[in-house]
């Protein structure tokens, strides 16, 4: 049972969390102005990197706050967590996406 460090509550068991997919995918300013293709890209397409990945998590069984986390998809290691509205921490050398 992995621990996920909630930015508010501290480390808790992963069973308390819900996964929310890729972080920093903003809802388009004016969906009506997008082509079908652009809209489909927003709705259906997400990155799937081998390596660090910025994701959204919700501490659903705890404080119910959404937050962002950079997780290495190879090791499950959470490299950093940060609150909504905070910028993604600077990419370190381990933060390079392996292609």
């Amino acid at each position: 049972m992995q621990l996920i460090p909630c930015p508010w509550c501290g480390p808790r068991e992963e069973a308390e969390f819900h996964y929310g997919g890729q972080a920093h995918v903003a809802y388009p300013e004016d969906p009506g102005a997008l082509t079908d293709q652009e809209w489909a890209r927003f709705v259906f397409f997400r990155d799937n990197p081998c390596g660090p990945f910025a994701e959204r998590w919700s501490h659903s069984a705890g404080c119910r706050r959404w937050f962002n986390a950079v997780r290495d998809t190879r090791t499950y290691e959470l490299l950093s967590v940060y609150r909504v509205g905070e910028p993604r921490p600077d990419a370190s050398e381990r933060d390079e996406v392996v292609s």
Partner: peptide, 13 residues
């Protein structure tokens, strides 16, 4: 409720 919180917290704070 999660859906509401998701939008309120992440898109429309």
């Amino acid at each position: 409720l999660d859906w509401m919180e998701e939008w309120l917290q992440t898109e429309w704070p």
